[in-house]
Write a protein that binds this DNA or RNA. Structure first.
Lengths: 197, 197
DNA sequence: AGAGGATGTGACTGGGTGGTCACACCATTG
DNA sequence: CAATGGTGTGACCACCCAGTCACATCCTCT
């Protein structure tokens, strides 16, 4: 948590600090990110930074929080949709995509955090949260008869999460709406040919 | 490429250098790996290291090569199998798993390399190679009638690759044979219920 | 024995890092 | 006016890094 001094700051200055930090943590994982570069980029003194934050980690976690907060405003729309599971998943991937397109730096920050090896507990916690939501959704979908009940729910979550993560990773290389649809088709229909077709 | 001096070395010493380097590059991504720690761990002088390798990057790429060479001896078995695509993919994932179990440090080295941001071209090259092999296999499988021809081959590769990578990532947390089978079931049958069942 | 080339060595260089601290500044009080 | 306390500052500290180099050591061939 930032110190009170940070929130007393002139908003313009505070914004400059945030922007420079976001840029740094987007371009470098935590360990390689440099406080010296950040203060250079936003034109404040090194010492000032330590009036605002406890240390480098405190600043980092604050920036990561900002990123996930913004992301949540996008993806939460998907889960509040009153539709079948395929529509929800489609929307979820699409909202992730929009977030990455609208806030590429915040997207990178979140990505770097997920890949990081510091503070595994916090990452693991987020993973469990996401898994719970997903599994609840899956249960309903199975009960409604839309989803193949022979599959292992944990394995389904694993597959969807792995694909979603990589899908987002590759947005920078220009994945588009149509491609997302095709990827989802693979997950929906499976690889094996369907006799019914 | 290491210098000739390295290959003239007493094998026992050479092994010590390799082992210490593998350990370091398994525990830290390239940028954070420390030559000072390596030489400390294998008991040779810093200067000696520069008799064996051009620089840190030279050493790193040599170690990465070792890792992939070892991995290839495992996964290549899958592709030489004369079986249907599902058996081959199953075997591919399983061999990746065995490699990670038998050589956890080399597995970590390869993983770190794949996630790294240095030398993107070399990583991209490997990605294209794997994609080519996979797509060729897929073509045959579609022609043979085993695989749903309505799916986009690029999207199929994308999904399988994403899942395979995460599957391997999580081996350390104890994924097992049965779990691999269940994950593959998800990919094979898809999420949507099959009318034929 | 001596010469010469290959190899081993670790103190050192220049540059980076996160974090500190004595001091300067400034606004609000009494 | 003076005093107080929150805020800004950048030189500085201790530490770590990749890479160098003058020198020591060893081996082989003459």
């Amino acid at each position: 948590m930032p110190k009170v001094t940070f929130f007393n700051l002139d908003p313009e200055k505070r914004q400059a600090v945030v922007e420079a930090s976001v840029k740094e943590f987007a371009e470098h994982p935590y360990e390689q990110a440099s406080l010296s570069r950040i203060v250079e980029n936003c034109g404040i003194a090194k010492g000032s930074m330590y009036q605002y934050f406890e240390d480098k980690l405190d600043l980092y976690l604050y920036i990561v929080d900002l990123a996930y907060e913004q992301k949540r405003t996008y993806v939460s729309q998907a889960f509040s949709l009153d539709a079948d599971i395929f529509t929800v998943l489609d929307e979820y991937y699409r909202q992730s995509y929009l977030f990455a397109k609208d806030f590429p730096l915040l997207h990178q920050v979140a990505n770097n955090f997920w890949d990081s090896r510091v503070l595994l507990p916090q990452i693991e916690e987020g993973r469990i949260d996401r898994s719970r939501d997903f599994l609840k959704f899956l249960e309903v979908a199975i009960a409604s008869g839309a989803v193949n009940p022979n599959l292992d729910p944990q394995a389904v979550f694993f597959v969807y999460h792995a694909v979603g993560k990589d899908l987002v990773d590759h947005f920078e290389q220009g994945a588009n709406d149509e491609y997302i649809g095709q990827v989802l088709d693979v997950l929906r229909y499976g690889l094996q040919v369907r006799k019914e077709d």
